[in-house]
Computed example of a mutant assay.
Amino acid sequence: MNALGDAHLRTWTLRFMALLAAGTSDQLAWLGERELETKDVVEEVELLCRVSEGLAERGVFEPADLRGLRAVGRRLGEVDARSRSGPWGNALATDPVWDDIRSLARQVLLTTLGDWRQPLPPPARPLTDDH
Rank of each mutant, 00 (worst) to 15 (best):
Q27L: 02
A124H: 10
A81C: 00
I101A: 09
T112H: 12
L31Q: 12
G32R: 08
D130G: 09
P119I: 07
D65G: 04
R74K: 05
P63M: 09
P121W: 05
M17C: 11
A93I: 00
R58I: 00
I101Y: 08
D100I: 10
P87Y: 07
G89M: 04
A105C: 10
R84P: 00
T94M: 00
R67G: 08
H8C: 01
E44P: 00
G114A: 09
R82P: 00
D115I: 06
G5M: 13
M17H: 05
A22N: 08
P87K: 11
R34P: 02
D99T: 15
G59W: 10
D6M: 15
E35M: 09
R82K: 09
E46A: 06
S25H: 15
L19P: 02
D6N: 15
A56Q: 14
R84W: 01
M17G: 03
E46M: 09
L92F: 03
N90Y: 02
K39S: 15
S52M: 07
M1T: 14
R34D: 04
D129S: 12
R70F: 07
A56K: 12
G89Y: 02
P122G: 07
D95A: 11
T13Q: 07
R34V: 05
P63F: 08
L48T: 01
L69M: 08
G23L: 11
F61V: 07
E43M: 11
L4T: 14
R70D: 01
K39Q: 15
D80C: 02
V108P: 03
S85Q: 14
Q107W: 03
L104V: 07
D100R: 15
D99F: 06
A124G: 06
N2S: 13
G89V: 02
L120E: 12
L31K: 14
W88Q: 02
